[in-house]
Design a protein around this nucleic acid. Structure first.
Lengths: 338, 338
DNA sequence: TTGTAAGCGTTATCAT
DNA sequence: ATGATAACGCTTACAA
């Protein structure tokens, strides 16, 4: 009952107050002043709930990410926020660590009008069951995939990312050029499409160089420091241990660095290590980490723009946007020993 | 027009559908089945917007934090989420890096019903101007301070945190016991109450030990790795450089470690370093970082609970909840040289 | 146990 | 340029 109060006080109709709020140019200056005075007097603030209800829009975007506190997402989020602010959206964050991994849980948020769209920056299991009848409404909510590569079920949706396969192949190539032949790979979780793709790139480069891959060389690092440390330990215990290690992301590479040094080995003299993402800790790692950088902020910005399009314009095309990656050579990689 | 559709299809009134949704026990089993069948058939999902509007509740909490991608907040957020899920709240995140630092901007979100409450995990400038007349409504929105210490203006609000002064004094004491006399302090930003308190603790411990503090020893590290590196460089250039360094948080300590090593000095032989927070990178730093741990998840959980109280119960008491800190000794600290 | 109907605050349509 | 009013989808007295 608040716009009403203002209206009464200003001696105008509620419609005029509403117009003043939303398109002031349609209101005569004299009236504008009266309304503004009334607003100031009662300390009126528009009820966003009512407004959104009326408009059928939440002005909220769910961003689904693996874990908050991931230093890589820091930069991605900055890009997202820039566009969100510009377009009047607020960001609702869900992480798949504390919450579920079910695709439906997030689509449901759109159908039940808790959010207008979804920005997926994490791996989840798509379409747990067949989507239920949505009463004739679009079965696909506005959704954009950032970072992750796309599984078949999700290929309808637009995505913005680097070419993970090529990028990982580039990194592996670099190690091969340094003379490494036994190259290990620390992968992420089983269900992560993204690290799966990086593994593919690694395999591809090895194959191209006609280097055999022992199945012992590929270990799961669980996308965590500790997981990577365990994985590294296993790698170091091999009879013929790798002379180089490709980690599917920097977080795991950091764990690997620590574990290798703890084992009394020197980097890169005994083992070279390469990561992926170029998080801010990569540069100050000891030794500074060679890694593959992604234009994180750009990814955030562009995926958010795509999402806005999807929301406004129905859908649009869904060809993936590929952004460039960039190998950054630091001190954690060197010539193969011997 | 959707609950209506369900109602018509089920041959009941909208009220019954609503009751079924909100308190099924009030509905006869036979009716329940009819309603559920209708819901399934049309693929109905309750419109959260309408529901929240009607209830006058957004079921949203704004969490204000310095930067997403801060590894310390990772753990805090997990605690927050646990309670939020339990209580049916979603989390709206704003960071003060991309957004503004104005207190009013966040309070406004409550007054305009974009959110039900505010969880402040960052320093902001409180009450830019006198709060405008809120038309008789409560001038203070539900708000809890996590982590940060409280400035005079914000002391009305409940807070949950460690005793930063005592904790920093404990850390400093530890250095003093190791024989250090020249101890530097890398502070955060000027407007961070939290690092201000840690500085106070450092000063307190020094005073108690009757050690003089040269003004050169306290430098601003801007709460970033790079800022800390610059600050460290300045400290290393002093004629009489400190033999130990207290960094107001681990992020800065990491930068300091790197810079000290880059200068060819050994840690802790030449300089000891101590941090604050015990982020996950502290343990794998080189050398592993001595630091003061906070029960991050507990802080998140308890501050969220306080906030729920503040929302439901009006206000309640606002005495700060102090949680225990814990000095974790690793390898970055050692006896004073000489 | 169920139905009727008012009302939440805003926007938008249609007159004036 | 402004006013009257219906409508958005849901909840909740109050009645039956």
């Amino acid at each position: 009952m608040s716009i009403k109060k203002v209206a009464k006080l200003a001696g105008v109709s509620t419609a005029t107050v509403s117009r003043y709020l939303n398109s002031p140019e349609q209101v005569k200056e004299k009236t504008r002043n009266k309304v503004q005075a009334a607003i100031d007097e009662v300390g009126y603030a528009p009820n966003a709930l009512a407004r959104n209800f009326r408009r059928g829009k939440t002005s909220l975007i769910v961003v689904v990410l693996p874990a908050i506190g991931d230093p890589f997402l820091d930069k991605v989020m900055r890009g997202i926020w820039r566009v969100a602010d510009e377009q009047g959206y607020s960001i609702l964050i869900r992480d798949t660590q504390s919450n579920s991994h079910e695709f439906d849980e997030y689509t449901e948020m759109v159908f039940s009008k808790q959010a207008d769209g979804i920005l997926l920056l994490a791996s989840i299991s798509p379409f747990h069951e067949a989507a239920p009848n949505r009463g004739g409404e679009r079965a696909h909510p506005p959704l954009v995939l950032g970072l992750e590569s796309v599984s078949a079920e999700l290929s309808h949706f637009p995505s913005v990312r680097v070419d993970n396969i090529t990028a990982a192949a580039d990194g592996t190539d670099y190690l091969i050029q340094l003379g490494h032949q036994r190259i290990g790979f620390i992968a992420g979780k089983r269900d992560s499409l993204l690290t799966k793709d990086r593994e593919k790139g690694y395999r591809k480069a090895m194959r191209k160089a006609k280097l055999a891959i022992s199945s012992d060389w590929i270990v799961e690092g669980e996308q965590t420091i500790d997981g990577a440390r365990r994985a590294t330990r296993r790698l170091l215990e091999l009879d013929q241990r790798p002379t180089a290690l490709f980690c599917a992301n920097d977080e795991m590479a950091l764990g690997a660095l620590h574990e290798i040094k703890s084992a009394g080995l020197k980097i890169p003299r005994d083992i070279s290590v390469i990561g992926f993402d170029d998080i801010r800790y990569a540069e100050i790692a000891d030794p500074p980490l060679t890694t593959i950088a992604q234009p994180a902020e750009e990814i955030g910005e562009r995926s958010m723009r795509r999402l806005c399009q999807a929301i406004d314009a129905g859908d649009g095309d869904s060809t993936p946007e590929i952004v460039p990656h960039n190998l950054i050579v630091r001190k954690s990689t060197g010539k193969a020993p011997g």
